[in-house]
Amino acid sequence: MLRFTANLSLLFTEVPLINRFAVAKASGFNAVEIQFPYELSAQIIKTELDAQQLQLVLFNVAADDLLQGGEGLAAVPEKQTQFETAVAQAVEYAQILKPEAINILPGCCFDNEHLAAYQDTFKKNLHYALAAFSPLGIKTVFEAINTRDMPHFIIHSSAQMLDIMTEIKHPDLLMQYDIYHSLVMKENPTSFIAQYSDKIGHIQFADYPGRHEPGTGNINFQQLFSVIKTSGYAGWIGAEYKPLNSSTSSLSWLRNAY
């Protein structure tokens, strides 16, 4: 049976974050994910999760200025101390919220002359995160983001993610596989998931090309969900899309997905 999470950073934004948990539960979700939960204390989130009988599956390590057009945090050599502080913050939240995985956004490099150093820094920081999260029983995941929406992102393909995993060779390092980003980069997500389901720690989706809910683009979600169901992937599937209208009106796919 497929298990879906509502990404509370993109869904139900009609209400403040603290109120999105209840709306997600009322909409049929038993689990949620949050890109960056740090505007609320971990205890406040835990109280709301318990009240709604929800599980928080995933959140990200803070990414500094990435969403404001900067290079982010996890690959910038001059920001390694800041990254370690962000990991410590994530650990504090994880000890209370007990997610299954924590995502690390690689970030961007605006000068190709420094790209190798950024890639090396990112891999060092993955090792650091693994040492922090694995003792808590939490997987470390990282993701590729397409270079159309976020130019200069240092990890933008599934092949790059596989190469990093092969190099680091840690059982708790997995990829966060985003179907929308893979399609923007002209990849084939159904064949990739079928072949590499054991390398994936979390899946996220949005329709393509608009990044809205299923039914607004070109993806055959019935086929996609069928492939995921038979692939051996047993993790959660995150609805991380931008609703075309209201969030609640975007959920017709959920009733037909099982």
Results as ranks from 00 to 15, higher is better:
Asp50Lys: 13
Phe110Thr: 11
Ala116Gln: 11
Asp65Tyr: 03
Leu136Tyr: 13
Gln223Cys: 01
Ile228Lys: 01
Ala117Tyr: 00
Ile44Cys: 00
Pro214Glu: 04
Ser231Val: 15
Ala94Gln: 10
Asn19Gln: 11
Ile179Pro: 06
Val227His: 02
His170Ile: 00
Gln89Gly: 01
Leu173Tyr: 07
Ser247Leu: 09
Phe110Asp: 04
Lys46Val: 02
Trp253Leu: 08
Gly201Tyr: 03
Pro189His: 07
Leu130His: 10
Pro171Glu: 13
Glu92Asp: 14
Phe29Leu: 05
Gln55Trp: 01
Ser134Cys: 03
Ser158Val: 13
Glu48Met: 05
His152Lys: 01
Ile138Trp: 12
Glu39Tyr: 04
Ala101Arg: 08
Gly107Lys: 13
Ala74Ile: 13
Ile18Cys: 00
Ala132Pro: 05
Arg255Tyr: 09
Ile203Glu: 08
Glu167Cys: 04
Trp253Phe: 15
Asp111Ser: 13
Ile200Gln: 09
Ala90Arg: 11
Ser157Ala: 13
Ser249Pro: 07
Leu162Ala: 05
Gln160Arg: 04
Asp50Phe: 03
Asn220Met: 01
His170Cys: 02
Met150Cys: 09
Ala144Met: 12
Gly72Ile: 07
Pro243Ala: 14
Asp178His: 05
Ala88Lys: 15
Ala6Leu: 04
Glu48Tyr: 02
Ser41Gln: 12
Glu143Val: 10
Ile193Gln: 04
Glu187Ser: 03
Tyr196His: 15
Met175Ile: 10
Asn112Asp: 13
Ile154His: 10
Ala75Val: 00
